[in-house]
C-alpha cells in the first residue's frame, strides 16, 4: 500500500479542480504531480473526468426536472410558488454579512406544468413558460429582462410599464408574472434583477438591445441565465 502521507489525495485534487487551492498549497501539489508519475496520471484522469462531466450533453434539463420533482410536493403545498431557493451562503456563518444575506434569485422554465430550474447553457423550447423566483430578507423591487435570438430586448416582468415590480420579503417566492417564450430561435438571455429601490428599466433594456453588459444600479443583485431556445421537439 502506497503511503498516503507522501502523495496527493483525491480530496486535494478535487479541491484543486474546484479552485479551492491557492498559493503555496496549489504550487505544492502541482510540483508533486510533475515529479510523481502516479499522482500526475491521477490528476490527468480526474481533470479529464471533470471536463467530461461538464460537457455531458442534455444533462442539465433532465437533471433539473428531476430535482424539481424531488422537491415538488413540499413546494406545491405553498400553492403556485414554483421556486427553489437557497437562502444561506458560506459567508453567513462567519458573520461577515451582519445586515443579512442578499437575495437569492433563480429561473425556472419548461412546459407550464413541468417547470424546472434552469441555468446557462440549458435548452428551452417555443411555448415554454419562464418563471423567476427569489428569497429575500427585505422588501425590494425587481424585473426580469431578456434579449432573444433576433436581438430584441424586452421586459418579461413587468409585462407593461417601465417600473420594477414590488417583491415582498419572503422565502421561495415567485415574481408576480411569468412569461411564455415565443418562436424566435437562438440565444435567449435572461436577467433577473432584485433591487432595494425601484429603478427605471429603459437604460437596462437599451444596454441589452445593444448587447452591452448590464450594469445593475447600486443596491441591485442580478442573476444572468443564457438559454438556447429552439423548436418544440415532436
Amino acid at each position: 500500500m502506497i503511503d498516503n502521507e507522501l502523495h496527493v489525495s483525491d480530496l486535494r485534487w478535487d479541491r484543486l479542480l474546484a479552485g479551492e487551492l491557492a498559493g503555496d498549497a496549489k504550487a505544492a501539489v502541482l510540483a508533486h504531480a510533475d515529479t510523481c508519475v502516479a499522482c500526475g496520471s491521477r490528476l490527468a484522469l480526474l481533470t479529464r473526468e471533470s471536463e467530461a462531466f461538464a460537457m455531458r450533453p442534455g444533462l442539465a434539463p433532465a437533471r433539473s426536472r428531476r430535482w424539481w420533482w424531488a422537491v415538488a410536493p413540499a413546494l406545491l403545498a405553498a400553492a403556485a410558488v414554483v421556486v427553489l431557493v437557497v437562502p444561506r451562503g458560506p459567508k453567513d456563518e462567519a458573520g461577515e454579512r451582519a445586515k443579512g444575506t442578499g437575495p437569492s434569485l433563480i429561473v425556472m422554465a419548461g412546459p407550464a406544468e413541468r417547470l424546472a430550474l434552469v441555468a446557462s447553457g440549458d435548452r428551452v423550447h417555443f411555448g415554454d413558460s419562464v418563471q423567476a423566483g427569489y428569497t429575500a430578507t427585505r422588501d425590494g423591487f425587481g424585473a426580469v429582462l431578456g434579449r432573444d435570438g433576433s436581438g430584441r430586448a424586452m421586459a418579461h416582468v413587468p409585462s407593461r410599464g417601465d417600473v420594477m415590480v414590488a417583491l415582498p420579503a419572503g422565502t421561495s417566492r415567485s415574481f408576480p408574472e411569468s412569461t411564455v417564450l415565443d418562436a424566435t430561435p437562438g440565444a435567449e438571455q435572461l436577467v433577473v434583477l432584485w433591487c432595494e429601490a425601484a429603478h427605471p428599466l429603459h437604460p437596462l433594456l437599451a444596454a441589452l438591445a445593444a448587447n452591452r453588459p448590464i450594469t445593475p444600479p447600486a443596491g441591485c443583485t442580478a442573476h444572468h441565465v443564457n438559454l438556447v431556445k429552439q423548436a418544440t421537439p415532436r
Binding site: D10, A18, V86, G89, R97, G102, S104, T221
Partner: peptide, 23 residues
C-alpha cells in the same frame, strides 16, 4: 458561488463529477 447564497446548480457543475466518481 454567488455571495447572495448557495447556487446549487453551480455546485453541481463544479463538484458533480467528484460526487459521481466517489459514489
Amino acid at each position: 458561488m454567488a455571495a447572495a447564497g448557495l447556487d446549487v446548480d453551480a455546485l453541481y457543475r463544479t463538484y458533480g463529477h467528484s460526487v459521481l466518481r466517489r459514489a
